[in-house]
Structure formats: C-alpha cells, structure tokens
C-alpha cells in the first residue's frame, strides 16, 4: 500500500488545464486512480463531464492512451481494446515484457442507466479490465437530470420539487449489487476522501485477472448544491452516514473496509446539500425517514453478510 509521499513521487497522469469545474469530485477520483494504476494503462471513458472536460480538441489532459467513443459503451469499447491486446500479444506483435491494464470510466448515467447493458456484457464475457463508475448521482453534464443513482427525495431538473411532487420518488438502484451478481473476481465501493482505501483498491483490482468493478462516490457541488470546497467533506460524510459504505467483494467474500465508530444520521449529509433542502420541512419528514430506512437496511445487510461464514 503506497503512502502519500510515495504516491507523490509517481507521475501525474491527468494533466492540469482540464476544464472540469473548480472543486470537481470526478477529477480527484481519476487522479487518485491513475496515481495508483501507473502509466501502463489504456483508458476508455463514457461521454460525460469527465470526457468532455478533459479532452477538448486540440487539448487532452490524458498522459495515458485514452478513447472516448460514445455514452453507453465505455465497457464495450475498452473490451475491444483489451481483445486487440490479447490478440496482438498472442501473435507476438507487442513487446512481451510490457503488460498493459485497461480501465473504463463512466458516470452514473453512463453506467447505471444507458451503459448498464454494455457493462454487464463486458463483465460476463470476462475481459481483463477495471470498470470505474464515478457516481455523482445525476446527469450532471447535461444539467443535473435524475439518474437511477439519484437518491430518494433529491431535487433534480427532471425530478424537481414541485407543488405536488417533492423531488425524486424512488430509491436509487444498487448497482454494486447488480455487478456482484456477475460473480466477477473483485468489486468494491470507494470514496476519494479515503485516498488510501481507494488507491489500494485500484492496485488490488489491477493485480487480478478478469473483470473488476469500482463504484466511487464523486460529489458534484453544482448538482448537489453545496460549497465548492466541500467535495471531500461530502464524500466523507456519505461514508460516515453509511449512505456510501466502503466495502469490497473478493471472490465472493464481502469485507466492510470502514465502519464508522458512530454511524451518523443521514440528515448530517442532507443538510449540507441544496438538492435536499425541502426534506428539512416538516411535511417531507416521511421522505427523510424513508431515506434513512433504506440506508439502514443496506448497512444492516452488509454487516450481516460480512458476518456470514
């Protein structure tokens, strides 16, 4: 496990000069992942904030080979790259001593929603790649529309708080569970505030052959309507409230990587975000309660599963 000092001596593989928002969570996630991965990686990326802001022609922030092809196919695209790697390697057309890893990035829109099929296909076929979902809980690039990752009650531009309907009506989809059903060798949830956990998970994932998956919370202060400097704080609180549990499943064995000494109530996280401000009103208390119930149920189930022998 690398220390920060060790990591700081590695090459910065995401160049400055990208045009993600000030305080963007996604770029923090990507920087940490690339620091852990090193330069022998090829990256694919779904259409979204990360892609449009890091590769505006004629500029690119990527110091590793990078391909964006469309929105719903980051996984399928990287699978193609990986297939070519396997083929050329077998045919002796690539240096034998050079091992390349493959990472696909997608936001929650490009992963939970439009890219789910492509992800599922890539995982099932067993390609050797790591898929990273940077989850900010809405379609931020197109202007904060609800996705199936948007939390219950959140105010987005397509689940607005109106006179009749108070924000998103559904629980978020549990993508990590869906991925787990593919029985891949490694999957985990991570958060950029815990850089040690995240970089360790990347290193571990890349040391394993076959499909791997990381779901990483990537706060978006624009969409969440919070302070531009609160990105890391929001990620930390998401973990402290168990909204975003840090856990991993390795060969079917579940480990919770962090258990808060005192699990904070979700309101601690909610009250920092404008997208949930209506939940603080007495008439919406039931939504807040439902949200807390959902989080509690998931956390309990993780604890139970971890305890299973």
């Amino acid at each position: 496990m690398a220390t920060l000092k060790e990591l700081s001596k590695r090459e910065e593989l995401l160049a400055g000069g990208h045009r993600l928002c000030a305080g963007c969570g996604a770029s923090i996630v990507v920087r940490q992942i690339l620091l852990a991965a090193g330069r022998n990686v090829v990256v694919s990326c779904a259409t979204g904030c990360l892609e449009v802001s890091t590769s505006i022609y004629p500029y690119t922030s990527w110091r590793v080979p990078f391909i964006h092809s469309a929105f719903e196919n980051s996984a399928a695209t990287v699978c193609g790259v990986e297939a070519m790697y396997q083929s050329l390697k077998r045919r002796g057309k690539l240096p034998v001593d050079e091992e390349i890893k493959f990472i696909a990035f997608g936001g929650d829109g490009g992963t939970y929603d439009i890219g789910l099929q492509s992800l599922s296909g890539g995982l099932e076929r067993g390609h050797d790649f790591l898929y990273v979902c940077y989850d900010n809980g809405a379609y931020m690039n197109t202007g904060i529309q609800r996705s199936s990752s948007t939390p219950l009650g959140a105010d987005t531009t397509t689940s607005p708080v109106g006179k009749v309907i108070p924000g998103k009506q559904q629980y978020r989809k549990d993508l990590t569970d869906i991925v787990e059903a593919h029985h891949i060798p490694y999957l985990a949830q991570a958060s950029p505030h815990n850089w040690k956990d995240l970089t360790h998970k990347v290193e571990k994932a890349l040391s394993i052959k076959g499909p791997k998956f990381l779901n990483v919370i990537a706060p978006c202060h624009r969409g969440w309507r919070a302070g531009v400097n609160q990105t890391i704080e929001l990620a930390r609180l998401a973990v402290e409230t168990c909204f975003w549990p840090l856990y991993e499943v390795e060969d079917g064995k579940l480990t919770i990587n962090y258990k808060p000494r005192e699990k904070k109530p979700i309101i601690e996280w909610i009250k920092l975000q404008g997208r949930f401000s209506h939940l603080l009103k007495p008439e919406n208390e039931h939504i807040l309660r439902r949200l807390q119930e959902g989080i509690d149920a998931k956390w309990e189930s993780l604890l139970r599963r971890e305890g299973e022998k």
């Binding site: 090829v42 694919s44 391909i67 092809s69 469309a70 719903e72 196919n73 996984a75 399928a76 695209t77 990287v78 699978c79 193609g80 790259v81 990986e82 297939a83 070519m84 790697y85 396997q86 083929s87 050329l88 077998r90 099929q117 492509s118 599922s120 296909g121 890539g122 099932e124 076929r125």
Partner: peptide
C-alpha cells in the same frame, strides 16, 4: 480474438475500441 458481444451496439463499440487499439 472473438468478442461475442451482447448487442450490435456493443459489437461495433468493441470493433471501434479494437481498431483504435491498432
């Protein structure tokens, strides 16, 4: 290397990734 994709969209996406790979 045969990629038995889960849709034509992914098949062409994988073709694109593979061709760009070289």
């Amino acid at each position: 290397e045969l990629v038995t994709a889960e849709s034509e969209h992914s098949a062409m996406s994988a073709c694109i990734g593979a061709a760009a790979a070289g």
